[in-house]
Nucleic acid binder design. Structure first.
Length: 304
DNA sequence: CGGGCCCTGGAT
DNA sequence: ATCCAGGGCCCG
């Protein structure tokens, strides 16, 4: 569920509430939540540390704690939430996965209905380019568990040209490539569709049929869309996505493609179509995003 | 590189 | 009862 804009909104909330606070205790309520690192003593070792930074790369979130070379990593999966509560909830929250108890008596509750999210610790390792590991950190390190994903489109240190060049070498559908976190991270199903609507590209065109310059523009479009979404707190369809204070985001009203099947395209009035690409529901304007008939696609390669 | 699967709950 | 959901990984 949460994509980059939602995770960034949550990161800002966690940063505001936790930096300078000490994590007294890490309580795990569901064994599945720590499936990537079942040994609970590792979490216990981090307890007692003051939170220095709350960082994010793509959809990965991590806490940097004083006196530890390991980060506390959270991935929210499809339905994870981090809620800051003044006091421990009583009765316990439904779908509660883990709780961080803070030194002022408040808690950060990790709630996860669909259980695809997880909590783990991971050693901080140097970034390959020496730049900060992501948003919210000044250190040139990233948790090893998140080192396999690329920088995201809102990261000033993303090498857009390099990412575009690598994308141009795969024949997969452009939408699949946008969802592949190894090229650029943070883009999920909603923002992939919004990006392709903005770029006026058909989701099924092979990335290799697009010029590197076009692919760089697609990355730029994704940054614009996700930046605008961060500005309004992300996209909430229902209570499944809320920020750390329990508030919804307002980007749903700005969506141009996602979830709009049968509604008129905001650019040309043609009815938005729903199809399946890479096993995911996909929404697009059949006119604006016709294969090979779009402004960005004018430079489409004939063959390579 | 595409398909299937992990899980739960709400909609149809 | 069945299908579908915003993520990611593993399999063949």
């Amino acid at each position: 569920m949460p994509e980059l804009p939602e995770v960034e909104t949550i990161r800002i909330g966690v940063e505001r509430r936790l930096v300078g606070r000490t994590v007294e205790e890490i309580l795990v309520h569901s064994a599945r939540t720590t499936r990537h690192e079942p040994d609970l003593s590792t979490y216990a070792e981090l307890a007692g540390g003051e939170v220095r930074e709350v960082a994010r790369r793509g959809k990965f979130l991590w806490l940097v704690l004083e006196g530890s070379t390991r980060a506390l990593v959270v991935h929210l999966g499809m339905s994870g939430q981090l809620l800051h509560l003044r006091t421990p909830p009583d009765p316990p929250l439904r779908h509660s996965a883990a709780t961080l108890v803070l030194d002022d008596g408040s808690v950060l509750a990790f709630v996860d209905q669909r259980t695809f999210g997880y909590l783990r610790t991971s050693p901080l390792v140097p970034t390959s380019d020496g730049h900060p590991g992501g948003a919210g950190t000044r250190s040139g390190t990233v948790p090893e568990a998140a080192a396999h994903i690329a920088r995201d489109p809102l990261d000033p240190h993303l090498d857009v040209e390099d990412a575009a060049a690598r994308m141009a070498r795969t024949s997969s559908a452009i939408k699949r490539v946008l969802l592949d976190q190894r090229y650029v991270s943070g883009v999920g199903n909603i923002y992939a569709d919004e990006t392709l609507w903005a770029a006026q590209l058909h989701p099924e065109v092979p990335a290799s049929s697009l010029a590197t310059e076009i692919l760089a523009q697609v990355i730029a479009r994704s940054a614009e869309v996700m930046g605008a979404a961060v500005a309004v707190g992300g996209t909430s369809f229902d209570s499944l996505y809320v920020d750390t204070e329990g508030e919804s985001g307002y980007f749903a009203r700005e969506l141009r493609a996602y979830g709009r099947a049968g509604a008129p395209c905001r650019r040309c009035g043609t009815l938005v179509q729903k199809l399946v690409v890479g096993g995911r529901a996909t929404y697009m304007c059949p006119r604006c995003q016709a294969r090979g008939a779009n402004p960005v696609g004018r430079m489409v390669r004939l063959e390579r």
